[in-house]
Design a protein around this nucleic acid. Structure first.
Lengths: 187, 187
DNA sequence: CTGAAGTTTCAGTAATTTCTGAAAATTATA
DNA sequence: TATAATTTTCAGAAATTACTGAAACTTCAG
């Protein structure tokens, strides 16, 4: 398959970004290609279009499938495996968030839980535990919140994002009007 | 400086996680160490405690300063540079979010804006542009929303997180009660 | 100005991650 | 069952990223 220069540059860019989003360059390229492609593609199509090895494509597709971003399908009378991107772009964002939470937050949270069970054995640990507690609470809030997001439909996610920025403004107002003393109590 | 085994394992763990959060292993370790330490530390303290080279510490501190997570301070009558973690843990979360948005979202958003200005030159581009538009809109929403978050105090951030999960439930209810037809119109 | 105390830089090396491609495995067809 | 079509695996090569440590630089005190 041949891409226009514009689309090629998008695919390449997405590859670079991919590495920041948790998958490697070629996996990013592969996903971008599948997203913009109108029809499902075979692994060979992908390898050819992106100039990467067949083996690499196979591994990349496996990863994209494990992220549930890509789906295998078959054409009648054709033995080859065809792949296409599944879900809306919001679904993909949710998947990425969830995956990142698993990798980036969950392990730390569980380590922190364990550490906070131990009584601090000296003043160094005493001070450290306060800090750890703060981190723990933060991560726990974020986890709860992302769980919540997972359950929402794309429509509702959109609504929520918009509501949130409004609420942010309201909370700001509250701060402006309520006296310092009262605010201190809430800390 | 000598850490208890517990704290050592936390620092090491944070190092591993660091690489997933956008900075490398030793930078993560350095930050963890500074966060749990009651007093500011010198670059030498850090190098010794973590068993890493002095040069590496220097580079790492520079990076942490650029993220505005660590601050240089001086002790009276002492020429050495002391460093400490600044801000609450929420401030650090905000910084990480902002930094990641800059690296992970902004460049893609600006590429997409440019691409969407071009008229699609054939049916392949036609289809692709629809997809790109969706991605663009998503990224733009997320950007607006993170800008909003940046402005909130830790207190209000907390409140907002809690509110959001409530709102999520309400939106769910709406979906349950409103008939399918009506929902379709909103798509 | 000199040198001691401290910090930064950066070329080279080490460690890690990604990619290739040939061989092995799988699956369908005749 | 044999064989042809296709996919997967994985050892090693290539590319990337992180780290070291010696040399260069900065700053200050005498």
């Amino acid at each position: 398959m041949n891409l226009t220069p514009n689309l090629t540059s998008f695919v390449m860019h997405f590859g670079e970004m991919g590495s920041r989003w948790g998958f490697n360059r070629t996996v990013g390229q592969m996903y971008a290609l599948l997203v913009i492609s109108a029809e499902p593609l075979t692994a060979n199509d992908i390898a050819e279009t992106l100039n990467i090895s067949r083996g690499n494509v196979s591994m990349g597709l496996k990863e994209l499938q494990s992220w549930q971003l890509v789906q295998l399908s078959h054409l009648p009378g054709d033995r080859k495996d065809y792949f296409r991107a599944i879900g809306s772009i919001w679904d993909m964002a949710k998947r990425v968030m969830e995956e990142r939470r698993k990798r980036e937050i969950d392990p730390t949270l569980s380590l922190l839980r364990d550490m906070l069970l131990d009584k601090p054995s000296n003043s160094q640990e005493q001070h450290a535990q306060q800090r750890l507690q703060e981190i723990h609470d933060l991560l726990e809030s974020v986890t709860k919140w992302t769980n919540e997001l997972q359950r929402l439909s794309p429509d509702n996610l959109n609504t929520l994002l918009k509501l949130s920025s409004g609420v942010g403004k309201v909370l700001d107002m509250k701060d402006k009007f309520i006296g310092k003393e009262e605010r201190k109590e809430n800390r």
